[in-house]
Structure formats: structure tokens, C-alpha cells
Design a protein around this nucleic acid. Structure first.
Length: 508
RNA sequence: CGGGGCGUAGCGCAGCCCGGUUAGCGCGCCUGCUUCGGGAGCAGGAGGUCGGUGGUUCAAAUCCACUCGCCCCGACCA
């Protein structure tokens, strides 16, 4: 415990999954609940989600979408309407069959009042929203219909991991209806870009935009696009998806409109979503061996002020000074709103107090004690440099430059993440190199290895299955960037000519 | 759901193989004193139906059976 070099044990290199769990605990983001597979998101974790929500919501509104809310329960028959959709979700649905509890023989409560038709707790809302949309859409004048909902959903997962995959999770689902295929496609790609822009500029998380293969796409979609990010263990995190649903759900839910040409037509729909999984992404992209590292644009706090009290008689003086600085900082605008500042006056030893905030990932810590007051300085530490490092700045200068400092932290986080992605993305041309790349040297206790492979690949479900079995590697996406690149190459497995380059990787 | 690991104080663990006094240790928590640019030191203290149920036994944290939960890997998925 003494002489400990870093706050989180094990380190990322020692045991990445365990490190992830420990960061969540150390930063007090969330904890497991009495309900299997469900987590409790604690205030620090939830305020990160609130910030994500706020930024995305702004972008959704800017692109013309409106929020609405649809029921948690979906009649079972609704889910049955779209064949592929049923097949995709049937295995993981929570089903409500009763609406009352009665006293049982042994004093416990037993379900009673069986429902005529079971209700499914939404695993996603295409079907119930579709049912409403079919009423709302009558004419081409009603289109496009651009709706979003912020909600919780339930998918009964076998194996759960906090933030990355829990039985219940929070998300946002956009659902839109369009008159033409072209408009629906544009919407699908527009929202994919909104996600990518948010992730890069606010989360400081570079992503690869791409199209999913047949085997990876959303049940019921014609085309699924996703944004894929690389975590520090070099595994891929599908961070958001945007689906072009064609007329599949319009037909299933009877969404028809009378067009200008007086003909009754099925509409084209899209859906797109991101979830609390993004918080997991944030942890795994930026976290270090001292805990969470938050990008300033999404951090619940920008600056935490740590009063230093060498002696209790300085207490009032130091606290007052800290409050004054907080007040001044709070007038400074960063990212279109006032800086969020907190003075930690809690009665815990100074060293521990500092480490608590390091673990929580606050971008800037400043220490203020009698010495700083006398010299009109502050001692500044930034979270993207080692916890021991700090520098002294004149108070006025620090306050004035705080937004610049935050921008610099935001940028350095992005740069580091981009370097990770670039450095661990390899172009590979042969099957042998491919297998070598994805095989750890230590099979017993695999070290962090692999990454993304960019290679020519001719779509083939058999081969996809094989590499999934052999290496646990799948096709993350077909990058949009590469789609325009019309140079022909040879498939790395079959040697067949193809113009399609794909990204392979292990995935969360 | 398959394979592996683990459930003993809030957290991390020892004890279990070879059953036997009041079940320990570190961190945290509470109180006091001392410290005070620091993940404090000393002293005292609170806190456990040893995951649960049943069995074997004079005696079970320890042996047996069943069960529940958690973590990792796999299948599946945002």
C-alpha cells in the first residue's frame, strides 16, 4: 500500500479485464446490483452519461429530430411481425406474463392474473414505434418523420460486463420514416456521421465508419453501418450503429403514404442508436494505471481545487481563497458553458484526497495552500500526465488559460487514441501473417496482442465462421473510406480478385 | 449454456488438503493523542449466521451432496 506507484492494480498489461473492473470501482462509476446482470450507475458514472446525452441530444435536435417516448412493453405479436427481427431477438427477451401477485401457500407471493397476450420488455422499439408511425404517416406531407427516444431496454444476455453488456441498459434510439430510398439512405449515413463526429470531438475517441457484413447486421435491416473504436487492449468496440431498414419494417407495421402521384406506397425507415456502452469505451480508450481519464468535454468536473492545510489555523483563509478562485473560474466559458469547478473541503488526508480525484479522472487538479496564496500562484496538475507532475502558475494566468489547457488535454487524449489505432492497424496480405497477428505468444495467459487488420476480402460466410472459431476474430466493418478506393486486390484467404477491403478484429 | 476460477468483516485475502480453544491478517471505518505540502504514526474500538440448504460427526469455515451468486474464456450480442 505504501510506495505504491499507481492507483489501480492490476495494471492494464497485467490483466486488462480485471483492470477495467477496478477502474469502475475506483472511480465510483457503478456497481453490481442484486439483480443479476443489471448494474447500478452511481452519480459520477451517471453524470458522464448525462453529458454524453446532452451533447448528442443537441446534435439530434440540430439535425431536425424530436424526442418522444414509447412504451416499455411490446405485445408479443408485434415482435412476430418481421421474420428476421424475431429471430434476432427472440432468444434474449424478458417476458411479462402476469399482472398481479397473490399470497402463496408458504407466505411468499406468487404471480396471478395471467395476461391474455404476453408482453415483451423492449429489446429495441422498431415494432411498437412502427405501429404508431403507421397511424402518423398518411401523406408524403407527413414525411420525413424524424423521432428519437431516450430509454432503457432489456436484452437477456448470458454474460454481462459493466457498461459494455448488461441486461438492462440505457440508450437512445432514433427512428425515422422517409418517402424514398435515397432520403432514408442519406439519413442513415447522416446519423452515422453525427455519431462519428461526437465520438471524435467530444469523447476524443477516433472511430472507423463502415458497413457491417451480412452476418453482422441488425436483424431486419437491409444495411447496417457502425462506428468501431479500438480499445487499449486493441479489441474493437462497436460504439454506435445506424440501420437502413428499407421497407422491411414499413411492410411489417404497415407504414404507407399517399404520394404526389396519388399512389399508395410503403415508406422507407431507419433506426440508429448508441448506449451506455459508450461509458465503457471512454474507460477503455483513455483510462490509465491510475484510473479513469476523462476528456474535458464530457467530464462532470473540469477543475477540482484541493486546499492544502499544513496547519488547521490556515483553514478559513485557504478555504476562502479557494472559494474565490472557484468563483472566478466559474465565469470562464469552455465548450459553450461555464467551467465546472469543485472545492474539495472534505476532511480526509490531503494525499488520499488527491488520489481519489486522480482515480475519478478529473482533467485538472489545482492545489492551493498558504504558499500559493502568498505568491498568488496555483499548483496545477493535468490528468493526462503522471500524477506526481505539477507546475506552478500565477493565479490570473491559470484562470485565463484554463480553457486552453482543457483543449490541450482534450487534443492530447485524441492524439494518443489515434496513435493507438494507427499503430495497431496493419495491412496484411497472407493467411499465415493473419493467423500470426491474432495469436498471442503466451497461450496460457494471453498478453495484449493483435489489433485491426485491413485486408482485401471477398465476402464468404464459411471463412468468417472459421476465423471466428480459430481466433475469435470477426469482420468489424467494411470501411467507408475503402469503398471509394476502387483499386482491385486479392482476397487474403482465397486469392480471388476483389475491390473490397475490410477490417478484422477481436470484438467486445 | 459449455470450460476454468472464486465466494470467510465495507474491500483485498489467510485458514480448508490433515475437522477440535473466544475465526485471523492488511486496507478502510470509529475514538483519542501525535503529525501536517500529504496516499501519515501510535493506542484503543466497532464490525462476521465463514454464499445458502441439507447430510456425515461428540464436534464442520474445514468432509460429502445439492443449490445460488460473482469473475475469466467460449457461443451470442450495443
Amino acid at each position: 500500500m505504501k510506495n505504491r506507484k499507481n492507483a489501480i492494480s492490476p495494471t492494464r498489461n497485467e490483466d486488462y479485464p480485471e483492470w477495467y473492473q477496478e477502474v469502475i470501482k475506483a472511480a465510483d462509476l457503478a456497481e453490481n446490483s442484486p439483480v443479476r446482470g443489471c448494474m447500478v450507475i452511481k452519480p459520477w458514472g451517471f453524470s458522464i452519461w448525462e453529458n454524453i446525452k446532452k451533447e448528442l441530444d443537441k446534435r439530434f435536435k440540430e439535425t431536425g429530430h424530436q424526442n418522444a417516448y414509447f412504451p416499455l412493453f411490446i405485445p408479443k405479436s408485434f415482435l412476430e411481425k418481421e421474420a428476421e427481427h424475431v429471430e434476432g431477438f427472440a432468444k434474449e427477451c424478458a417476458v411479462v406474463t402476469h399482472h398481479r401477485l397473490e399470497k402463496g401457500k408458504d407466505g411468499g407471493l406468487v404471480p396471478a392474473g395471467e395476461l391474455e397476450e404476453p408482453l415483451v420488455v423492449r429489446p429495441t422499439s422498431e415494432t411498437i414505434i412502427g405501429a404508431m408511425f403507421s397511424k402518423w404517416v398518411q401523406s408524403y406531407r407527413d414525411l420525413p418523420l424524424l423521432i428519437n427516444q431516450w430509454a432503457n431496454i432489456v436484452r437477456w444476455e448470458m454474460r454481462t460486463r459493466m457498461f459494455l453488456r448488461t441486461t438492462e441498459f440505457l440508450w437512445q434510439e432514433g427512428h425515422t420514416v422517409h418517402a424514398t430510398e435515397k432520403e432514408a439512405m442519406e439519413e442513415t449515413l447522416k446519423m452515422l456521421n453525427v455519431y462519428a463526429d461526437f465520438m471524435e470531438s467530444d469523447m476524443a475517441m477516433p472511430v472507423i465508419k463502415g458497413r457491417k457484413t451480412e452476418s453482422e447486421k441488425f436483424p431486419g435491416a437491409d444495411i447496417t453501418y457502425s462506428v468501431e473504436a479500438m480499445m487499449q487492449d486493441r479489441k474493437a468496440l462497436q460504439s454506435g450503429t445506424s440501420h437502413y431498414l428499407g421497407q422491411n419494417f414499413a411492410k411489417a407495421s404497415d407504414i404507407k403514404f399517399l404520394d404526389r402521384d396519388e399512389k399508395l406506397k410503403y415508406a422507407y425507415t431507419t433506426s440508429w442508436g448508441v448506449s451506455t456502452r459508450l461509458v465503457g469505451g471512454l474507460i477503455m480508450v483513455h483510462g490509465d494505471d491510475d484510473g479513469l481519464v476523462l476528456p474535458p468535454k464530457l467530464s462532470p468536473l473540469h477543475v477540482v481545487i484541493l486546499p492544502v492545510l499544513p496547519n488547521n489555523k490556515f483553514k478559513n483563509k485557504v478555504f476562502e481563497h479557494c472559494d474565490r478562485i472557484k468563483k472566478q473560474l466559474s465565469k470562464i466559458i469552455y465548450n459553450n458553458s461555464p467551467l465546472k469547478v469543485f472545492v474539495d473541503k472534505s476532511e480526509i488526508p490531503g494525499g488520499r484526497k488527491k488520489w481519489d480525484w486522480v482515480k475519478k479522472g478529473v482533467p485538472i487538479r489545482i492545489e492551493i495552500g498558504p504558499k500559493e496564496i502568498e505568491k498568488d500562484e496555483v499548483t496545477v496538475s493535468r490528468r493526462d500526465t503522471p500524477a506526481q507532475e505539477n507546475s506552478s502558475l500565477k493565479t490570473g494566468k491559470f484562470i485565463k488559460n484554463a480553457p486552453t489547457l482543457l483543449t490541450s488535454i482534450q487534443n492530447s487524449l485524441y492524439d494518443n487514441a489515434l496513435r493507438l489505432l494507427k499503430y495497431n492497424t496493419k495491412e496484411i496480405k497472407s493467411k499465415e501473417d493473419f493467423y500470426d497477428f491474432f495469436t498471442p505468444r503466451n497461450i496460457e495467459k494471453p498478453e495484449i496482442h493483435g489489433g485491426f487488420v485491413l485486408a482485401y476480402f471477398k465476402e464468404d460466410e464459411e471463412i468468417e465462421k472459421k476465423i471466428q472459431e480459430d481466433l475469435n476474430v470477426s469482420i468489424r466493418c467494411i470501411p467507408l473510406e475503402e469503398e471509394n478506393n476502387k483499386e482491385e486486390g486479392k482476397c487474403l484467404f482465397t486469392g480471388k480478385p476483389t475491390r473490397q477491403k475490410v477490417i478484422f478484429g477481436k470484438a467486445y
